[in-house]
Each structure stands twice: as C-alpha cells, then as structure tokens.
C-alpha cells in the first residue's frame, strides 16, 4: 500500500521539511554567533546597527512578506485548478524577490562605498565589535541572498512546469515544496531584520 512513492504527498512534504530543518540549523549557526558576540559587544553592536538603513530594511521585510503571500496564494490557485493565476502569482513572487535583491544591492554598495566590508582597512582599524557585527551582517545577508536567488530559480522552473501541465491540481507536490522553501527564506529574514536593523 505504501509502495507508490510518487503519489505519497505526505512523504514528499516530510522530506522537504527535513531539508528545511537543515537550512534552519545552517542559519542557526550564524544566529548562535550573533548571540555570543552581541553578548560580548552590546554597545558596539548598537552603534554599528545604526549605520544600517532601517527604512530599506523595513521595505525589504514588507517586500519579502508580499512575495511569501504570492507563493502561498499560488499553491491555493493550483489546488483550485487556476493555473494561469498561479503562474501570475509565481511571477509576482519572483518580481518581489528582484525588488528585494535590488534594495540589497544598494545597501551593500553603499556600505562597501564607505569602506565597510569584511576585512576592510576601515573595519580592521575600528573597534573590534564593529568588525564582528559587519562580518556577520555580510555573511548572514549574503547567504540569505544566495537562498533568495536559488528560490527564484526553483520557482521559475516550477512556473514553467505549471504552464506545461506537469504541475496540476492533482499533482502539485513540487509547487508546494517550492513554496515551503520560499517561506523559509522569508522566515529567516523575519529574524535577520530586527536583529541587524532594529537593535540600536
């Protein structure tokens, strides 16, 4: 009875969730470092944090939440057999992601323009806590950005599969798992945002 793995939706979701756990732990290592160094350099972290642009951070949070909404609605759309709408919603997700990466690009280039990047002379010469804060900031948002890009490619592929009829109301596992991945990216950002942009 359990021998048709390709129709076992729960099994497929279980596998995806297990993968999400590994992603959670991966970022967990970075949050662990954040916690430890924040404990050690509370003042330096607060000062460094004010140098990040919280307006851009907030904008990116709202953009990412919206992209997640689109992804979740795409699942509902496919479940209801509304393929065209689902493709549109996935397009919306990817558009939001592009917006997110654009803002991220401006933030990063502004920081790098001010000589703030891992190993820069400015940070090496500054107070120790500041260098740690910005190294963590670049590593965390960098790896997160990489996940955004991977998620985009994944969702784009799934979008094409919806168009070609490979993902349907009867067989939408792939979309569901892709959306789960996307929500994880959002989930991580929900914690990055207050920790880096708001604690000052």
């Amino acid at each position: 009875m359990t021998h048709q793995p390709h129709t076992d939706n729960l099994g497929a979701r279980l596998g995806m969730w297990l993968f999400l756990f590994t992603e959670l732990l991966l970022f967990g290592g970075l949050f662990l470092l954040y916690a430890v160094y924040f404990k050690r350099y509370p003042h330096e972290f607060a000062v460094a944090g004010t140098q990040l642009n919280w307006v851009m951070g907030t904008a990116n949070t709202v953009i990412l939440l919206t992209s997640s909404l689109c992804a979740a609605m795409a699942v509902t759309a496919v479940q209801r057999g509304e393929s065209r709408r689902a493709v549109g919603l996935i397009g919306g997700t990817i558009l939001c992601a592009a917006g997110f990466m654009t803002i991220k690009y401006f933030e990063w280039s502004e920081k790098i323009g001010h000589g703030i990047y891992p190993g820069s002379a400015h940070l090496r010469g500054g107070v120790p806590g500041e260098s740690v804060f910005f190294s963590l900031y670049f590593m965390t948002t960098g790896i997160h950005g990489l996940h955004v890009l991977i998620g985009c490619v994944l969702l784009a592929v799934i979008g094409f599969k919806i168009t070609s009829g490979a993902v349907t109301a009867e067989n939408y596992n792939l979309l569901e798992n892709g959306a789960l991945y996307w929500h994880l990216v959002d989930l991580i950002w929900i914690f990055i945002f207050p920790l880096y942009y708001l604690i000052l």
């Binding site: 929500h183 959002d186 920790l195």
Partner: peptide
C-alpha cells in the same frame, strides 16, 4: 523585537506553510 519576530514566524509557519493543517508528526519534528 524577538517576541514579535517569533509571533510573525509562527504565523508564517502555521498559515503560509500549512503547518496548522499538518498531522502531529510534522509538528513534533
């Protein structure tokens, strides 16, 4: 800040990620 972040994460997991409608297994894991 972290409490609010946790509430937001809970909402995303429960609704967007359908955890509210999953069985006990996934929740426990």
């Amino acid at each position: 800040a972290l409490t609010i972040a946790c509430i937001k994460a809970g909402l995303v997991i429960a609704i967007f990620m359908h955890m509210k409608y999953e069985g006990r297994l996934l929740r426990w894991l």
